[in-house]
Amino acid sequence: MAAEPGEARAPAATAARNLRLQTGFMSESYHAAVDVYAPRGVKYQMVMQPIGYTSPATATLDAIFAALADPTRRAIIARLARGGASVGELAAPFSMSQPAISKHLKVLERAGLIWRDRDAQRRPSRLRAKPLAEASAWLEEYRRFWEASFHRLDGLLEELKTEEKPRPSRRKQ
């Protein structure tokens, strides 16, 4: 995985940039966490698991979703998708103290969503692409199964409506 620290550094920035480019398919009320990282138009080649028990790659998804449940932390992720940023740079737009931001960063770091570049002087925080991708892929597969099915159901319902039969018989309990 190119975006891990200790491996290639430059691809991490590329990954973050690409993440940002690929976001944005959801509506307002769509889970805000997804809105930050869900890839658009990604073609997965997976074994289909109807209804969705395939999932996640790691047991850390709990931590990831918990971390993303907070709006400030989602905003931080969104900011970091545009490139690494120091605590000071992150604190400014949020009108929060640096210690408060640091707390949020710790949560994100524990969830594996970001890493701190300890080599650079400003110690900028950077996104880790892989956990985001995994969390996203997990939801994405549910979405994919149901989206295809529901699209088919739309057609079926249209067909049933135009049949204009008397109301379907009441079902037995």
Binding site: M1, A2, A3, P11, T14, A15, N18, L19, Q22, P39, V42, K43, Y44, Q45, M46, V47, Q49, Y53, T54, S55, P56, A57, T58, A129, K130, A133, E134, A137, W138, E141
Partner: peptide
């Protein structure tokens, strides 16, 4: 879920992200 075939998908996704 990972063992049931998501690995290939992740490989592609990672390539895309990178």
């Amino acid at each position: 879920g990972m063992e049931h075939g998501m690995a290939a998908g992740f490989d592609r996704l990672e390539a895309l992200l990178a």
